[in-house]
Nucleic acid binder design. Structure first.
Lengths: 333, 333
DNA sequence: ACTGTCCGAGGAAGCGCTTCCTTGATGAAG
DNA sequence: CTTCATCAAGGAAGCGCTTCCTCGGACAGT
């Protein structure tokens, strides 16, 4: 850990002056100030916020008070539900949850610095399709990190993650469609670069192959509604005889159902559909979706406890937990 | 501020012993330990987390890394959109955002202690119908607090809040319906105990009164979908000749439209509807909703800056800002 | 040339807590 | 009765930073 003293020594000034320079006080000679800045930069100095708070009597942190119901209401997305589980679990400990925003246009370098400046004991990331670069980035830090969702990098790295049994979920979806008597079964995946997509696809294909069915009716998409609508169209164009489809998220399923209706295909009469997630969408859509449930709030909670374990025992083996998925039968099959 | 030294003095032991007792170390005589606990309780001692972090080299805080897109996707609720604005704004400063969960079953007393133990410089609350007790509770603390949404207590207190122009929004809704030639216009409100409900109702009634229309066709509800469906039914039962309705949230509008359809009323042919919020629901519903837009992300951002001002200048007058609402015309009028 | 100002810089104290090290007291062992 | 271990408790240092206070030097005014 680089302290202000180190910086002062490097710059050849007193700690007092270094402090002033770092804080942009005006009573310090420009030349020396520059020297301090240079030294700080060179050594990678990050002021310890705890020491600052103590000395200043100020904390530079504000609270957002979140009523439980605030987040209970957020049942409509993967992220929100996982967040709910995580916050609940944190509240049981005496830890604080600080939210760090990684802006879309922020450079990797800058974010890493920001993260280190935060002086947190560990970090968690809920992986969605848009932040797949984070695992690779966070590998560079030796801060304990837990991901919700298997990072694609996990095979040859020591990343820790909590995930649901996506392979099993994919198999479950496929078997449900097969059991319903379907045999031209397509699949709409999330970004194929994501671990979850690969795992679900694998489970799905294993099941179809085991039954001697064609498992190559694949359309890649993005987990979102519009993408699902578009991918469904593509699939239908290529395989007009489709009678079943596994869609990897409720959101995409909403889009897919729209396309299906627009093309005059009835669900489930003409084509059966199984989706994934079991968010509220699955119950509000017409027809209500048969979907593979992921225990999102549990995943969020487990992410928190896993991180605590990692912090308590650094250098141990990575934590990799898989929670079971289950099928929720409704009206779309 | 009560420090460990105060506790030690009160308990008649050394600071070292007090520290050990507080942290449950076993090398302290049970009797003295009890004395320390009593003293701490009596004085209301809360360990300063900054001092702890500094001494222990540990921070007891973990980060949740949130990509911007994570929360951009949360466009479907009042809370989520405001949160988005707030997080973005915080990221511009060097402050940290800590999320504090107020559990549904947590006592006021306990929460207040928890809040104080957090040692944050200030707090923010996004008011929704379920956490209306928070303003009254937080008045008891002298921590700077900013609410998003006018607390009902605001009239005779010094609470700070940011709100959208709900009176103007209510008027806007009414005038839109009147301009569409409607003259039996009902309204479905949120909980009437909430400031926002009162304000929107007031604006609505002012406009109807100005045009000599009956402004008493009121049904109270809860801002949620099911409530909206139910309230619409009530309104229809009482006033079968209704030809226009102002619904105070997109969520309730979704329910109301459902009821309307079920009863064979076409929107907007038979009855015009204006809602409030402009969340994604407004564009996904059939018909797409004409709705009063609140600048939710701006409200969230302004809440952050207001809090910063409050922290910087404590004891100043409360901050009360109102941001304009606007009408978004779609297909429901 | 002498005093008075002003400015930049450093010494040192101190923020509130934990913890190493030491000390005194007690009881067991020789 | 002395010696040792054992245990509870306190003294004091120190975590990394800010900031009050002091001080030396440069400069201007007389």
């Amino acid at each position: 850990m680089v302290t202000l003293d180190d910086v002062a020594r490097e710059a050849g000034v007193s700690r007092t002056t270094a402090s002033r320079a770092i804080n942009g006080k005006l009573t310090v000679h420009p030349e020396r100030s520059a020297a301090v800045q240079r030294a700080a930069e060179k050594l990678g100095f990050r002021p310890n916020p705890a020491a600052r708070s103590l000395a200043r009597g100020r904390h530079d942190s504000v609270a957002l008070i979140v009523s439980e119901t605030n987040i209970e209401g957020m049942t409509n997305s993967f992220f929100a539900m996982a967040l709910h589980g995580a916050i609940r679990e944190i509240a049981k400990t005496d830890q604080q949850l600080v939210m760090l925003l990684r802006a879309n246009d922020e450079s990797d370098e800058k974010f890493l610095r920001f993260l280190e400046a935060s002086h947190v004991d560990g970090a968690m990331v809920i992986l969605e399709s848009h932040n797949t670069e984070l695992p690779g980035l966070l590998e560079k830090t030796d801060l304990p990190v837990v991901f919700l969702g298997r990072p694609i990098e996990s095979v040859d790295s020591a990343l820790s993650y909590i995930d649901s049994d996506n392979v099993g979920g994919g198999r479950l979806a496929a078997e449900t469609l097969i059991a319903a008597g379907r045999h031209r079964i397509g699949i709409i995946t999330g970004p194929i670069g994501m671990g979850v997509s690969q795992d679900r696809l694998r489970g799905f294909q294993m099941a179809l192959d085991a039954h001697g069915l064609d498992s190559t009716l694949v359309a890649e998409s993005d987990f979102l509604t519009a993408g699902g609508a578009e991918a469904m169209g593509r699939l239908l164009d290529l395989y007009p005889d489709l009678d079943g489809v596994f869609v990897m998220s409720d959101l995409m399923a909403a889009g897919a159902v729209g396309t299906l209706k627009a093309r005059g295909r009835r669900v489930p009469e003409d084509i059966s559909l199984v989706s994934f997630d079991d968010t509220v969408i699955a119950t509000t859509l017409e027809p209500r979706l048969t979907t593979v449930r992921q225990p999102l709030e549990e995943l969020g909670a487990r992410m928190v406890t896993a991180l605590a374990e990692l912090i308590a025992a650094p250098g141990e083996a990575p934590i990799r937990d898989t929670l079971p998925t289950s099928l929720v039968r409704r009206d779309s099959v």
